[in-house]
């Protein structure tokens, strides 16, 4: 490598680091006064409860957003049916658990049924319009309406929850006076597990290398003899699987009802808009931010709890149109 090239590389790395630092400063500048104000509004104990609420909801959002962002990064498809996948996966899980009495079977069934649906959608529908950004998005939103209506026809309009196994019921005691629902802690742990797994796959394995290369340059990857179509299908099915599974997980502490598909989609979208489309770290960061904002908003200003998503999104979009960790298009 010539000296100039080394120098150029330094400049690039420097600018990336400086960029990350700027993101950090912006985040802190907004977060610290908010935290200070929040602490004046509630007790420390309530504050930590809300932190955990936010993180566990953020964990659920990470499940959804990671699949969404991976599909987008690889295939350039914004799969709006992700909300529908979540809802229907949850319903399938509820029914399976009711029939078999096994929570884990429900979890698996939710994921598997939705990945079959994903296979159908990718192979039969999306393949016909591959590469046309907007028709793809519009097709997936049409699909969400069909899935939502189908779910309404099969499972009805009443809010539904899943039957949790005994060991996930009740509260977990920390110290003398701090109780927190076990299930939410379980969701948090699951998300950390999945997150580590995804990062490991992404950074350390050949599949991850192929996927990352596919995100950067699909044509070259295909030219190197990798079956990029199979990679696409695999990624889509995997994303659908996580979405279906997250529906079952969500059914344990949120209710499933018609319309919830679009609500959860909104949260997932805000996560990827804030974090940056196509970036796994972005999905994780966005999920934490959105989860926390939502938890505190619900506790402090319940009437405005949707609107509170608006403000950070607006600010971040004005400063960084591609999200916190998104790359410039």
């Amino acid at each position: 490598m010539t000296e100039a090239a080394v120098e150029a590389e330094h400049v690039v790395v420097d600018s990336v680091v400086r960029d990350r630092i700027r993101v950090l400063i912006i985040t802190l500048a907004i977060a610290i006064p908010l935290i200070a104000w929040t602490l004046t509004q509630m007790s420390t104990l309530a504050f930590f409860t809300q932190i955990l609420n936010g993180l566990s909801f953020g964990a659920l959002l990470f499940f959804l957003a990671s699949g969404f962002t991976m599909i987008f990064g690889l295939m350039r498809i914004a799969n709006l049916a992700h909300g529908g996948f979540y809802l229907m996966g949850g319903y399938v899980g509820i029914t399976t658990t009711l029939v078999t009495g096994q929570f884990w079977l429900g979890l698996l069934a939710g994921g598997l049924v939705i990945s079959c649906l994903g296979l159908f959608v990718e192979r039969i529908l999306l393949r016909r319009i591959r590469g046309m950004e907007k028709p793809e998005v519009l097709l997936t939103i049409g699909l969400t309406f069909v899935i939502g209506d189908f779910s309404l026809a099969v499972w009805g309009g009443d809010p539904r929850q899943i039957e949790k196994p005994e060991y996930l019921k009740g509260a977990f005691q920390i110290g003398d006076s701090f109780f927190y629902p076990k299930y939410r802690l379980f969701v948090l742990a699951l998300a950390i597990l999945l997150g580590s797994f995804l990062f490991y796959i992404d950074r350390k394995t050949k599949i991850g290398a192929i996927v990352r290369a596919g995100v950067d340059d699909r044509e070259t990857v295909a030219a190197m003899g990798i079956n990029i179509k199979a990679v696409f299908t695999g990624a889509f099915i995997f994303g659908a699987f996580i979405a279906g599974m997250s529906g079952v997980i969500g059914a344990g502490f949120l209710s499933l009802l018609p319309g919830e598909d679009f609500v959860i989609l909104l949260f997932a979208l805000v996560v990827v808009i804030i974090g940056g489309l196509g970036s796994l770290e972005g999905a994780a960061l966005g999920a934490v931010v959105v989860g926390l904002i939502d938890a505190f908003a619900k506790a402090l200003v319940p009437e405005l709890s949707f609107f509170t998503l608006f403000a950070p999104m607006a600010i971040i979009l004005m400063v960084r149109p591609n999200g916190l960790l998104g790359r410039a298009s």
Partner: peptide, 12 residues
Amino acid sequence: VYFILITIAQGM
């Protein structure tokens, strides 16, 4: 696509 996602969020 980014535009579509932002407008969905706005409407929601």
